[in-house]
Structures are given as structure tokens and as C-alpha cells.
Design a protein around this nucleic acid. Structure first.
Lengths: 122, 122
DNA sequence: CAAACACCTGAGCAATCGTTCAACTATAAT
DNA sequence: ATTATAGTTGAACGATTGCTCAGGTGTTTG
């Protein structure tokens, strides 16, 4: 017979005390979502490279497009996303827009991630 | 007249020296891809929560499914992915499989990310 | 053995993502 | 004013993602 909603696992929790403790000490869902969003920004190679380049120097859309070998449109789309998340900011100079990182956290996250990526062959 | 392949930006690079220097000091593409992959793992709330829970304690599939309120199948699929990237490992005990983190790097990445996510209202 | 159980897996589907294309804005130069 | 240029934007597309569903392992219990 089935006491639970599912027909898969019969036991409510294998270690009830542990599980409830973990659930209680769990972070707020908004924080977890925000964290996932930050990681999501860095999960795309194009955006990651943009952030890595911008962490080194201020750059215009044109140069980023050339460096990444994709269209300016694609770069602009990604920059808009990064802008909306306050990860980059920009400065207008005539026709051109020069972008920089607006969030130093990103740089340190990338640095820490790099250490791990390097030591893993994968 | 156009010297480049594209018809978008006419100048090859606004700051040629800077750009070539950045391109030269750029990390190997494999490393960047690997890094993006790591961030991608943590970009999904379900996987992120799994990693956060497993960084606290060893847990079986059944409990994870209950804690996350999704099917065991969904958990199993995600665990397979995490297994293939050597982020989690598991221990069989009878019918049950107990999972733990296989990569401490993940824990420190999450910790660092959390500090940033918390201080940002977003 | 057969039934129950914890977990795994492949197929399929809706939703999301990253890019290109074409059209648009805004600034600069002739 | 006309033209060119740097950048932005919306639509559309192909690809990927995360889930459910149904069926399949392998282990344990009766």
C-alpha cells in the first residue's frame, strides 16, 4: 500500500532527522535562484570570455566581436544581458561604447573556477 | 572599401596592441570550455541544491527526491550528469545508493558565489 | 521462485538559449 | 542634408535543456 503521493519511494525519509535539519538550514529560495543565475551567466563560453576579457581591460563592442569572432549583434545581445544583471557597465565615447566589469565578484569567481578547471584534465 | 571579412566594423581593432596582447594571454579554449561546463553544472537550481545538500552530508536518491520535491527519475538523471563530470560519487548499500560530493572545489565555488548572491538584492 | 523495492535509462516534449538576419537609432564626417 | 559607422533591437531558427513517462536493472524479502 502507498502512504505517499508517489508510487516510487515508500519510505518518507531514510534519515528523517538529518533531512529535516538540512531542509531547515537550507538557504532562501531567492538566494539559490540568484546564485544559479550568476553561475548561468558564466556557463556560456561566449559570455565567460567576454567577462574574462573585460576583467583585464575596458573594451568596445567592435573589438569584442573581433576577438570572439562572432557578430557585433551577438556581442550586443550578450552585453545587454550582462548589463541587466549589473555585471557590466559601459561608457559612451562618440559612436563607440566601452564596456567594463561592474562586479568584481565575477572576477574572483572566475579566478577560483580557473584553478579548478586547470587541475582537472577532463 | 572593405578589407575585412565582415561588413560591420571597418576598423580591425580600435586598440590593436591591447587586443592582440589580450588574445595572446588568453587561456586555452579547452580550459575555458571546461570552466563554462563547471559553471553550467551550478546554473540549474535543482543541480545547485543537490550539490549544496551533498556538500553537507551523504544522501540517497530517495531523500534527495523528497527534499527537492521532484521525481526520483529527475534526480537520477541529474546525478548521472554530475557523476559523468566527477562531481559526485556514490556508494551502494543494498538497494540504495548514497551520494557524496567528489569535488571539494564545488563547495568552495558555491560558498564564494553565495557571499556575492547574498549581498546583492537583485 | 516471485513480488517488492530503490534506482537507472531512453524516448519524447515543452521551454529556454545563443546565434544570425534585417531593420533601426544615434553619432560623426563630408 | 546625405552618407557612413558603431551599436542596439526584435524576430526567427536550430540546438540544447530539464522534466515526465514508461519500462528496465539489480538487490532484497517472503
Amino acid at each position: 500500500m502507498n502512504q505517499n503521493e508517489d508510487d516510487t519511494c515508500q519510505i518518507k525519509y531514510v534519515n528523517h532527522e538529518l533531512v529535516t535539519a538540512l531542509l531547515k538550514s537550507q538557504h532562501d529560495n531567492k538566494i539559490v535562484s540568484g546564485l544559479a543565475e550568476i553561475f548561468g551567466v558564466l556557463a556560456d563560453p561566449t559570455r565567460l570570455k567576454i567577462c574574462m576579457f573585460l576583467s583585464e581591460s575596458e573594451l568596445c563592442v567592435c573589438d569584442l566581436a573581433g576577438m570572439l569572432n562572432i557578430s557585433e549583434s551577438a556581442v550586443s545581445h550578450q552585453l545587454r544581458l550582462l548589463r541587466s544583471l549589473r555585471i557590466v557597465k559601459y561608457r559612451r565615447e562618440g559612436k563607440m561604447a566601452f564596456y567594463t566589469l561592474d562586479d568584481n565578484h565575477i572576477t574572483s569567481l572566475i579566478k577560483q573556477g580557473l584553478d579548478h578547471a586547470k587541475e582537472k584534465g577532463e
